[in-house]
Design a protein around this nucleic acid. Structure first.
Length: 423
RNA sequence: GAGCCUGUAGCUCAAUGGCAGAGCGCUACACUGUGGCUGUAGAUGUUGAGGGUUCGAGACCCUUCAGGCUCCCCA
């Protein structure tokens, strides 16, 4: 135990098995986004603190970001989110981009939070955004990208759902209840906390915020009304589009979904695992109308969502939806019979690689049982051996480790034999 | 930033304040041209770290680190 230096709190080390999961998630988000024609992009990993100070709340900048002074005296921060960078990138090329812009990204982010299940300080996040179109149909497309991802990893609508609400609808309802605009933030917060508080305490908290009893009753009626969406033209169009996009079974209206973000102005949505132990959102997003103005661009409406890799990774593992881990990408193991035949094995491996077959040579002339055991543990399905007999005949012993069958073939037939076994 | 719980072999976990253990895994051999199955034998370790109480601490106390559960927050 010479090395006692531990990883930084809240970071994860990606051993090959964890790396395989990360790459699995990456492959699935990539396929989902690109299937809808989205382009991959990325921003810087460190940004000026001011980029976030402009738009984000005090909580983020002062308490939940990795911020430091660089050697030149500038305050920089490890990016806690991508949207401000996206807004700046869009604003900078506003005149030359071909709108609507459909972009996606998957990269690392940092937030100085208390690590616990489903939350680390260093994580990967999938971001998908469409800018330049303001319509419920565009909102539906983003939700469809998310739903397509859920479907592609085997999370059926019985296991995961996307709950949808609309800020404008809620504002209209708040108006009808006579809840003033300066109380909206408090009331949104109140709605957000409803599932976390006991009903009696929640009622008391509502009255504490200055709601009248009749407003509270009205609010509760509203939050229990799952047909409320029919009053919203936007949501009616949204659900029609979701049906045509083939993902309607994943989506439900829920008036309790608010989302903490201040910049959402229309549709908001959040995906949850409905069958597991983890109560955290899988992904969430919505429509924002005013983001670009803050970084010097002309106002452009956008819609997007983000998904962290931590929660979805736990869910996929708990449900057994992660493909079997393959310890090595090698298709075959070439054994080394003894020292005199070592170079024969190297030559054979080169022949295989030239034919597009991933081949690993055992690193030393060890006992054959040891070499086969190694192949077994590495889950390699094919083992090739050149012993004295094979060397004399210019042939190779090809063993199928799945069935135990072994054949001896001429060197020139090895590639075809191996390829046949791989299928 | 606050509260509570946990930390023992590679893994999962035992051990009234009294010799640190089991299962799985690992290594070797049975088996000197072939893995899985079986049998036999073997190795595990600064009990997260540091300090204290005690004749004696894995256990009790303090500090610290890490993880988990909440609050907060979730951009």
């Amino acid at each position: 135990m010479a090395n006692k230096i531990l990883p930084v709190k809240g970071t994860r080390e990606f051993y090959p098995e964890q790396m395989a999961l990360r790459n699995f998630i990456y492959a699935k988000v990539r396929a989902a986004a690109q299937g809808f024609g989205y382009q991959e992009y990325d921003g810087p990993f460190i940004e000026p603190l001011d980029l976030y100070a402009a738009k984000s709340g005090e909580e983020l900048v002062k308490k939940q970001s990795f911020t430091f002074e660089d050697r030149g005296g500038d305050f920089v921060t490890l990016r806690p989110e991508l949207t401000p960078s996206l807004a700046r990138m869009i604003a900078a090329k506003q005149g030359e981009l071909n709108f609507p812009v459909r972009w996606w990204s998957f990269g690392p982010f940092w937030r100085y939070e208390q690590p616990q299940k489903g939350r680390s300080r260093e994580f990967f996040q999938w971001n998908v955004d469409m800018l330049g179109v303001n319509s419920p149909e565009a909102d539906a497309e983003l939700i469809a990208v998310g739903a397509t991802f859920l479907r592609s990893v085997g999370l059926s609508p019985e296991r995961a759902l996307i709950y949808v609400n609309n800020r404008r609808l809620m504002d209209a309802e708040f108006d009808a209840l006579g809840i003033l605009s300066e109380k909206r933030l408090d009331v949104s917060n109140l709605v957000d906390r409803r599932t976390k508080m006991e009903p009696a305490k929640w009622d008391a908290y509502a009255l504490e915020l200055g709601l009248t009893q009749s407003q509270l009753d009205g609010l509760k009626d509203m939050l229990a009304n799952f047909e409320l969406w029919q009053k919203s033209d936007e949501l009616t169009r949204l659900f029609a589009a979701l049906e045509a996009l083939g993902v309607k079974e994943y989506v439900q209206f829920d008036p309790n979904i608010m989302r903490g973000l201040l910049y959402y102005t229309g549709t908001v949505f959040e995906a949850f695992d409905t069958s597991g132990s983890l109560k955290r959102a899988i992904f969430g997003g919505g429509r924002y109308d005013n983001l670009l103005a803050d970084v010097g661009g002309n106002p452009i409406s956008g819609v997007g969502f983000a998904m962290g890799d931590v929660v979805i990774g736990i869910i996929l593992q708990e449900k057994g939806l992660v493909p079997e881990f393959m310890p090595t990408p090698a298709d075959v193991l070439v054994t080394v019979f003894d020292e005199s035949l070592w170079m024969k094995s190297f030559e054979l491996s080169t022949q295989l690689r030239n034919a597009g077959i991933a081949a690993m040579v055992f690193p030393e002339p060890a006992k054959l049982p040891k070499q086969f055991k190694f192949a077994d543990k590495m889950k390699i399905k094919i083992a090739l051996t050149i012993g004295p007999d094979e060397a004399a005949n210019d042939s190779v012993a090809v063993k199928n480790l799945g069935t135990g069958e072994q054949v001896t073939v001429k060197r020139e037939a090895v590639v075809d034999t191996v390829k046949a076994l791989m299928n």
